[in-house]
Amino acid sequence: MSAKGPPSCLATPIALLTFCLISPIADAGEIERGRYLVEALAACDNCHTPRGVAGYDLSNRFSGGAQTFSDKSYVVRGSNISPDRDTGVGAWTDEELRAAIVDGIGRNGRLAPVMPSESYKPLTARDLDAIIAFLRSATPIRAPLLAPQQRSGEWTPHPMPGASAAFDEASLADKNTRGLYVASLARCMSCHSEEIDGAPDYQNCLGAGGKTFRNAAGVVVASNITSHPVKGVGAWSDDELKRAITQGVARDGAPLRPPMSTLSKTHFSKMSPDDLDALVAWIRTIPPKE
């Protein structure tokens, strides 16, 4: 009797396909790094996982979100990014997934601009591979794309200043560079910078707040997180900033409102101490604005 080994991908049942996609290239450490990036920083569940009364429905993780996003050129919902071959991304190549994540280009053309691919452009090659490995390790969920899905026209990416291309691993040893990296992946400035024609005005309003959100909590305006001592967070202590980021609590102890409260408790609370320290250090470099 021959010794047993891993199943051959030349004659593999569909049930084992995910194993063959992952096992040659992804180890447990790479998958866990991808999990951290997805859960603590990029918050992919926010758009791609349905919600229940208690929060994300993780039994249907990555099968597509229920929230509708719309603007003058699109009406879409978060797509199925589970490794299901027919309705998800199980049949996509790594190159196709990379293009979708960092360039906003899907199999059928340009994705809607609500997919924040410009925020993911600084992903290092290792981190981008780790995200793909983690997505491939998820449970395949058969869930056809929900209507509506309409896109028209073109759009221009608006990456954060200094974060328009992939970072190299060595550069992340610098604390401020690492903070910029974390801020881009977590999309801090895309929320905390006022928009012009649907795009953040980083040149004039970086971190100054002003973007308006309309949700179940009502109308919420993103706050000023520049280093201005009165209008911004220049007088806040590091601990106060960290509490706001990870617990959704303002300086005066009042709870922050969605979407920040949701993101902080569900995602940013998982941020590593080093990444949190770097993010706070970088936020303090934002020039004061009123």
Rank of each mutant, 00 (worst) to 15 (best):
A3K: 12
P6S: 12
P6I: 10
A11V: 08
I14M: 01
I14N: 03
T18P: 07
F19A: 13
S23G: 07
S23D: 11
P24R: 09
D27F: 04
E32S: 09
R33Y: 15
G34E: 08
C44P: 01
D45I: 03
P50F: 07
L58Y: 13
A66M: 08
K72E: 11
Y74G: 01
P83W: 02
T87L: 03
V89H: 05
W92G: 05
D94C: 01
E95A: 08
A100D: 01
A100W: 03
I101P: 02
I105L: 11
G106N: 12
G106D: 15
R110C: 01
R110V: 01
P113D: 13
P122K: 11
T124F: 10
A130V: 07
P144W: 11
L146P: 00
P157L: 11
P157F: 03
S164Q: 14
A165F: 12
A166E: 04
A173Y: 05
N176H: 12
G179T: 05
A183C: 07
R187S: 14
M189R: 02
S190F: 05
H192N: 10
E195T: 09
P200Q: 04
P200D: 01
Q203F: 09
N204E: 10
C205H: 11
C205Y: 02
G207D: 05
G207M: 08
A208E: 02
A216K: 01
G218V: 00
V220K: 05
H228M: 07
G232C: 11
W236C: 08
S237T: 13
L241T: 13
K242Q: 12
A250Q: 15
R251F: 14
P255R: 15
K265G: 00
H267R: 05
H267F: 06
D275L: 07
D275H: 14
D275V: 08
I286F: 06
K289C: 00
